[in-house]
């Protein structure tokens, strides 16, 4: 996260007064409080943005699941390794359910900024989800529902992206996951010999890998549709051979499923900024000091 200012705007002089005010608040011991402290992994910027959009953080919430992979699934075989992708699906579902459970317990409407860690090992798939439970400050959501939703949303979008999306009339509904694992195909020795000097597409290889990738994406789409999503943004795709079984290749895809909750997409005039420095800025956030420009660069 970073900060920027526009040349020509001067910060208000009262920032020192605010600092002093803050320091004075610590000069006397705090009265004993029965309040349940708020914990969140949001930065100050994100907390402020969330607040501007009418939401507040409640608590840091987690979901973890460890699911066993039956013995021998990584051995030589043909085609898709469905037991491994079943284990993956079960682990992400269970972890998301835990996360939602913790969110509901603190009366949250959803979880933002979820950090997703999926690791596939020889005998088990471990999934960890950590994020901040949030709710509208008024206690009511966009449709005026009072209570925490029965199905809190889960999203790996940052608080900034969450507010941005909301402003355009969209809401996250859940994380969509898909995975597929496949054994690398083989060529017969004879075919391999014949092809040594040729430029030629290995169609059965192409087909196997292409299908596996499509199948991971399709599962992700199905899970998005199941969650009631109309689209998936920020799809991440990981792929590669498994470190413990090199002849097996794993593909995973996940992203945040989103849904249009407004009547129509709300257009938001983009802001064009021209940085005067060479620093690569990864995140911009609003400051309280007037209307400085913000940007995000990838």
């Amino acid at each position: 996260m970073s900060t920027s200012f526009s040349p020509g705007t001067t910060p208000p002089a009262d920032i020192r007064a605010e600092m002093l005010l803050g320091a004075r608040s610590l000069a006397t011991p705090a009265p004993p409080s029965e309040k349940r402290g708020i914990t969140s992994d949001l930065s100050v910027d994100e907390a402020l943005l969330l607040h501007a959009a009418g939401w507040e953080p409640l608590d840091l919430v987690c979901g973890v699941a460890v699911v066993s992979v039956p013995v021998g699934v990584w051995n030589w075989g043909r085609g898709a390794i469905s037991l491994a992708s079943d284990a993956h699906d079960q682990a992400v579902d269970q972890a998301a359910a835990q996360l939602r459970g913790e969110c509901s317990k603190v009366h949250g409407h959803g979880v933002v900024g979820v950090r997703v860690e999926v690791s596939v090992r020889t005998h088990h798939v471990d999934v960890e989800l950590v994020g901040t439970a949030v709710r509208p400050i008024s206690g009511k959501d966009a449709r005026g529902n009072d209570a925490a939703q029965a199905m809190p949303f889960v999203s790996d979008l940052s608080a900034r992206d969450f507010t941005l999306l909301q402003r355009a009339g969209w809401m996250p509904v859940g994380l969509a996951f898909g995975a597929s694992f496949v054994y690398a195909p083989r060529r017969t020795a004879g075919t391999a010999m014949k092809q040594t000097r040729q430029n030629v597409e290995l169609t059965n290889y192409t087909e196997a890998m292409y299908s596996a990738r499509e199948s991971a994406m399709e599962k992700m789409q199905r899970s998005a549709l199941h969650a009631g999503g109309q689209g998936v943004v920020e799809v991440k795709v990981t792929e590669g051979p498994m470190s413990f079984a090199r002849h097996a290749v794993g593909f995973t895809a996940w992203g945040t499923a989103v849904r249009l909750v407004a009547e129509a997409h709300q257009f938001v005039q983009p802001q064009v900024v021209l940085p005067l420095d060479d620093a690569v800025v990864t995140f911009e956030a609003e400051s309280l000091r007037g209307s400085e420009s913000k940007g995000r660069r990838r």
């Binding site: 499509e214 789409q221 999503g229 998936v232 943004v233 920020e234 799809v235």
Partner: peptide
């Protein structure tokens, strides 16, 4: 074949994209 399946689903209105929220908007 799997591609055809997946694309058929997309034709029913779901969209997927690796664009960030900023890029999507």
């Amino acid at each position: 074949k799997d591609a055809a399946h997946r694309l058929e689903e997309l034709e029913h209105g779901l969209f997927t994209s690796d664009l960030s929220v900023n890029e999507f908007l």
